[in-house]
Computed example of a mutant assay.
Amino acid sequence: MSTWLPREIEAKRQVLQQVLKPIAEACGLPNEAYTSEAFAAVERDEVLARTWTCIGVGNWVPEPGDLKPVQLLGLPLLLLRDRAGEIKVFHNVCSHRGLELVSAPCKSKGLIRCRYHSWSYSLDGSLKATPFIGGPGTKTCEGFDKSKHGLKPVRSAVWCDAVFVDLSGEAPPFEDFIAPIAERWQAFDPARLRHGGPDSAFAIEVKCNWKLAVENYCEAYHLPWIHPALNQYSRLEDHYIIEEAGHMAGQGSTAYRPALSGDGRQFPAHPGLPESWYGAGEYLALFPNVLFGVHSDHFYTVVLEPLGAGATREHFEIYYFDEAVLDDAYADLRATNARQWMTVFEEDRGVVEGMQAGRASPAFEGGVFSPAMDGPTHCFNKWMAEALLG
């Protein structure tokens, strides 16, 4: 971050510094961090744009030529899969007059054509056609170099099908960013992941700031009251805390054993796992905005898409470790698994939306943390405060 602070952050410097204190003395982020659109804009440019932020998953563009527009708090981006099958991200804007190029998911027939003046780009971003640029019937113009006016690329990387971007181009190497979670879950081979298909994906829109979704996901403290069915087989006592300062935070369970079928059928497990992974699960928020869950038989990704200061779209994508799970024989189990996870996240709706409503109160300014139970939430708040202050 530059040596100057935007006024939205400077005005809250003292509160942000309180967040950095040891957990027993710390407060949470100020209300403006959840309610102010001006603060959200600064947060996008000073935090989300300066690290590796998740914008989607590769399954959104499964085939070469697939295009999908995505946004990061109003910033238009284009996610695509090129002819070689590689995922690329570009700024979704024509170099000519700034029109948004792709407005809905589609498949390229060879070029990405701007509907305004028909300027066209290849899937590698290079500008290929500029009809009539020099007048009717001409495709060239003296002094105009097409090679300098292609789509503007965004630095991107993929891990476990999650697509990350570094809008600044100055974030640390992706390998360093992803190392803590990749090393923690090294027993799982990302190459084995297979998306469960249309019945293994859903999206939920919640009326809360994206950070409240992260904070809620991090901790198991609320489990007995908000998730009574889940708490019957994976109790609060069965959970443990995970914290990696500056990277990620969350929780794990030693008793994840849901009943998906009355006849005892289960998904095939990832081969070669240590015994401790059977009947267990871990749930990590990788800062800033992506949630992961891993179990011996399936993996999920939740991309948190900020829609504004007070709204978030949660994109839930479920993956399995065996190709056989995609067969019709497992269709009922896949549907049940997706339905159970949707129930859990819908149960969270009331509390995250209630916290958003509470952030309008002048009587609340960040709250307090339980040193025993809220460590992951404080870990995330501290990361955000450090990122904002620079």
Rank of each mutant, 00 (worst) to 15 (best):
D145M: 13
S118W: 09
S120P: 00
I133T: 06
T130I: 10
R113F: 05
F144K: 11
E142M: 10
L111E: 12
S118D: 11
G134T: 05
S118Q: 14
G135R: 10
C141R: 13
P131C: 06
P131W: 07
G125C: 02
Y116K: 13
C114H: 03
L123V: 02
I112Y: 07
L123F: 05
A129D: 05
S126H: 06
G134P: 06
S126D: 04
S120H: 00
P136C: 09
I133H: 11
Y116S: 10
F144A: 08
P131T: 03
T140F: 05
C141A: 12
L127E: 00
R113L: 10
R113Y: 04
I133M: 09
T130M: 08
F144V: 10
I112E: 04
C114L: 05
G135W: 14
C141E: 07
T138L: 14
H117Y: 15
H117R: 09
H117F: 13
E142A: 15
Y116A: 12
D124S: 15
L123E: 01
K139H: 12
F132E: 14
Y121W: 07
L123R: 04
E142K: 08
D124L: 07
S118Y: 07
S120L: 01
G125R: 02
G125Y: 01
P131H: 06
D124I: 03
C141H: 09
I112M: 08
W119R: 02
H117I: 09
E142D: 08
H117L: 11
L111N: 13
R113P: 04
W119P: 02
I112W: 07
D145E: 08
L123H: 03
D124W: 04
S120R: 01
K128C: 04
S118C: 07
K128F: 00
P131E: 05
A129H: 05
A129W: 01
L111H: 10
W119T: 00
C114M: 05
K139P: 03
R115T: 12
C114Y: 03
